[in-house]
Amino acid sequence: AGDWIMRPELSKAHLDQEDRDLAYEKKVQLQPHIVYLANSSNVKVGVTRKAQVPTRWIDQGAHEAIEIVEVPNRYLAGITEVALKDHVGDKTNWRTMLTNNVVDENLQEWREKLQQYIPEEALPYYLETNKETELEFPVLQYPTKVKSLNLTKTPSFEGKLKGIKGQYLIFEDNTVFNVRGSEGYFVGLTIS
């Protein structure tokens, strides 16, 4: 995969320039992309294909999110995200997200505050009237102190599932399991 997968601001398909497979790159990169603000543990900026909204926010465990711009290609989304990262974070504190020690923010105000930093090329795509999306997760009990389950160190685990938030399963004894972080493992699951 090319650099544009991890760094959308390096996307070149809109210039008809190939990285490895121009037909594939155009298919992925030349479609609507969203730059958004999401609040999982703190307000962060991110990029996703429009078709991935709200799936991407759910995957991140965001309890609220809002679109900033909807642009026609990955490059414009990338340069916008890079410009905004100087003024808002781009990382989630997963432990805070899982303990649900999160603060509600007014993301519409955040969006308005950040508008001045949007690159000129992307400014025509600014979304000024859309509302914040609020998300709820099926969690009966949040962990008080997060214990991460590592399948290499603990190949067998038994527990009572108390919730799912983002890509994590949350168990009654404060253990959390990062499903996405365990890709590649073969897992047997017994439900009783």
Rank of each mutant, 00 (worst) to 15 (best):
residue 119 P to D: 05
residue 6 M to E: 15
residue 48 T to S: 05
residue 30 L to M: 12
residue 99 T to G: 07
residue 112 E to Q: 09
residue 43 V to T: 03
residue 30 L to N: 09
residue 1 A to T: 14
residue 38 A to F: 05
residue 89 G to L: 10
residue 42 N to K: 14
residue 106 N to W: 07
residue 81 E to Y: 01
residue 75 Y to F: 12
residue 94 W to F: 11
residue 54 P to K: 03
residue 32 P to I: 02
residue 160 K to V: 09
residue 152 T to H: 14
residue 27 K to W: 13
residue 178 N to Y: 07
residue 92 T to A: 06
residue 31 Q to H: 05
residue 141 Q to H: 15
residue 98 L to K: 01
residue 146 V to Y: 06
residue 182 S to M: 06
residue 96 T to I: 14
residue 15 L to P: 08
residue 174 N to I: 03
residue 77 A to Y: 00
residue 120 E to T: 13
residue 178 N to K: 05
residue 136 E to M: 14
residue 161 L to F: 05
residue 67 E to D: 10
residue 191 I to E: 08
residue 109 E to W: 11
residue 4 W to I: 01
residue 42 N to Y: 05
residue 148 S to D: 13
residue 30 L to Y: 02
residue 77 A to V: 05
residue 142 Y to E: 12
residue 124 P to I: 02
residue 85 K to V: 06
residue 17 Q to R: 15
residue 152 T to K: 15
residue 38 A to K: 02
residue 113 K to D: 12
residue 61 G to L: 02
residue 117 Y to M: 08
residue 151 L to M: 12
residue 159 G to A: 05
residue 28 V to E: 04
residue 150 N to F: 07
residue 69 V to A: 01
residue 131 K to L: 10
residue 192 S to K: 13
residue 186 F to W: 14
residue 17 Q to C: 12
residue 183 E to N: 12
residue 53 V to S: 07
residue 37 L to R: 00
residue 192 S to R: 14
residue 1 A to M: 15
residue 99 T to W: 08
residue 144 T to R: 15
residue 80 T to V: 04
residue 132 E to A: 08
residue 97 M to C: 06
residue 23 A to S: 14
residue 125 Y to M: 04
residue 79 I to A: 01
